[in-house]
Amino acid sequence: MALEPDELAAASGNLGQTLRELRRTAGLSGERLARRCAMSQSKISKIETGRLTPALVDLDRILNALEVTSEQAGLVLARARLANTEWQGKRELWRKGLETRQDELRSLESSASEARYFLPTMVTGLLATPAYIRASLTHSPGDVSGTVAKKIARQEVLRDGSCSFTFLLTEQAARWAILPAEGMAEQARRLVEVSRLESVRLGVLPLGTVLPRGPMNTFTVYDDRLATVEIFTGRLAFRDLRDVATYRELFAMYEEHALFDDDAREQIQGWWGT
């Protein structure tokens, strides 16, 4: 299914409308449906008006209470999947401000117990030196000094022990030179340093590693509740548990083939002669 931004914005409301129509067809009031589902009537109302996107477990309870057909259930679940997908365009992020985005990321990182980062193209901000961060923002409009500062401040989460982090970098990500050789050598030393932190596992995938799936996109998985995928024009966020599970499985596959610990550090140092 093509994910058009307008469709994503309307999906939650469309899902609610569909559920409301199914309830009325079943001859149930919102109050009676709420009792059947062991939910509050206000929660049913919020779902039907699009103010609340239901979790899949709640949706299953509602569909069972409405005794819908398998065809109807399939339609509702397809809309639920769309409603649990969020599109953030690059221009929208710029309008909101890059610093605002850093606050959002810091909140995600501080609320997660496990975070997994698959990095096929470049080093992520949590692992980057100040010079690398600034160089990575040269395409961004306006003064990026505040954003650089917030990216550096976010790195403290790697040391506070509240979350465990696993980073997987392809050889391209580790070697893609957005700085002169001296700056990239410093960045390599930063990767080695971070790899020794107690809450961090850092793995690398050298070119020539035999893998069954190509590295299509940068993606991050927070626990089992959210996966974000980055493309040139923006970012997709998936909250449907099936989508999140798919990205966890992909990550596990790449992780199985990666080098870690001293092997990873030796590989990084060899790439940049550090």
Rank of each mutant, 00 (worst) to 15 (best):
residue 149 A to F: 02
residue 140 S to H: 13
residue 102 Q to R: 05
residue 214 G to Y: 13
residue 237 A to T: 10
residue 202 L to F: 01
residue 1 M to A: 12
residue 46 K to L: 11
residue 13 G to R: 14
residue 122 M to E: 09
residue 260 F to G: 04
residue 114 E to L: 14
residue 215 P to C: 08
residue 101 R to E: 15
residue 228 T to G: 07
residue 21 E to Q: 15
residue 12 S to H: 06
residue 240 D to N: 07
residue 66 L to E: 02
residue 113 S to V: 12
residue 84 N to T: 10
residue 62 I to Y: 01
residue 40 S to M: 04
residue 56 L to I: 14
residue 66 L to K: 00
residue 20 R to G: 09
residue 260 F to T: 05
residue 261 D to I: 07
residue 241 L to D: 12
residue 29 S to K: 09
residue 58 D to R: 00
residue 11 A to S: 08
residue 80 A to D: 02
residue 225 R to S: 11
residue 256 E to R: 13
residue 177 A to C: 05
residue 197 L to V: 06
residue 10 A to Q: 14
residue 272 W to V: 02
residue 20 R to M: 13
residue 64 N to I: 09
residue 31 E to G: 07
residue 164 S to Q: 11
residue 5 P to G: 07
residue 211 L to A: 08
residue 70 S to E: 15
residue 146 G to H: 05
residue 19 L to N: 02
residue 9 A to R: 15
residue 39 M to I: 03
residue 93 L to G: 12
residue 184 M to N: 01
residue 221 V to C: 06
residue 121 T to Y: 15
residue 15 L to Q: 01
residue 35 R to T: 11
residue 116 R to M: 10
residue 232 F to R: 14
residue 235 R to E: 13
residue 54 P to H: 01
residue 243 D to R: 02
residue 181 A to Y: 10
residue 262 D to N: 08
residue 137 L to R: 04
residue 69 T to R: 07
residue 198 E to W: 09
residue 51 R to L: 14
residue 108 L to N: 03
residue 23 R to V: 07
residue 45 S to K: 01
residue 217 N to M: 10
residue 94 W to K: 07
residue 225 R to D: 08
residue 174 A to V: 09
residue 18 T to K: 06
residue 11 A to T: 05
residue 238 F to A: 05
residue 56 L to Y: 07
residue 119 L to E: 08
residue 237 A to H: 11
residue 264 A to T: 03
residue 123 V to Y: 00
residue 270 G to M: 04
residue 232 F to L: 15
residue 238 F to C: 08
residue 274 T to K: 00
residue 149 A to R: 09
residue 111 S to K: 11
residue 80 A to R: 00
residue 123 V to M: 01
residue 58 D to S: 08
residue 255 E to Q: 12
residue 91 R to I: 13
residue 78 A to M: 09
residue 105 L to A: 13
residue 18 T to Q: 13
residue 102 Q to K: 03
